[in-house]
């Protein structure tokens, strides 16, 4: 095996993928599952490197990075939604609103 295709020579962004997936899942409901795609792509980087496919590994690495960003964005959206939800008074205010609407 030459050094170019040695394990770890193409970043698989695994740590980022895991953080983003967990946070996105918690903050932005099942959409956070998309983070799993990042981990799958991350896995492909290693597999392709083992096969000596440097070009393919680089593509998988870029793809993993893109999906990491998607999961990160979802986590941020989820956080903003949560903050907005709290700022509007949270669950209590929401229930009150519904009761008011039903009262009419």
């Amino acid at each position: 095996m030459n050094t170019a295709t040695a394990p770890g020579s193409v970043p698989n962004h695994l740590a980022w993928a895991i953080i983003a997936t967990v946070l996105a899942t918690c903050l932005c409901c099942p959409l956070g599952l998309l983070g799993i795609v990042a981990i799958v792509q991350s896995n492909k980087v290693n597999t392709l490197l083992n096969q000596g496919d440097l070009e393919g590994a680089r593509r998988a690495s870029d793809s993993a990075k893109t999906w990491c960003w998607v999961a990160t964005a979802l986590a941020i959206i989820g956080l903003v939604l949560n903050i907005g939800w709290f700022a509007m008074g949270g669950t209590a205010a929401y229930l009150e609103q519904i009761q008011q609407m039903q009262g009419r």
Binding site: V22, L23, T25, L27, C29, G78, L79, N82, F86
Partner: peptide
């Protein structure tokens, strides 16, 4: 005021976080 898990709020099931 800590952010809640939207998945747990909507489904009642636990998520990984």
């Amino acid at each position: 005021f800590f952010p809640k898990c939207i998945f747990h709020e909507t489904t009642g099931y636990w998520c990984i976080g």
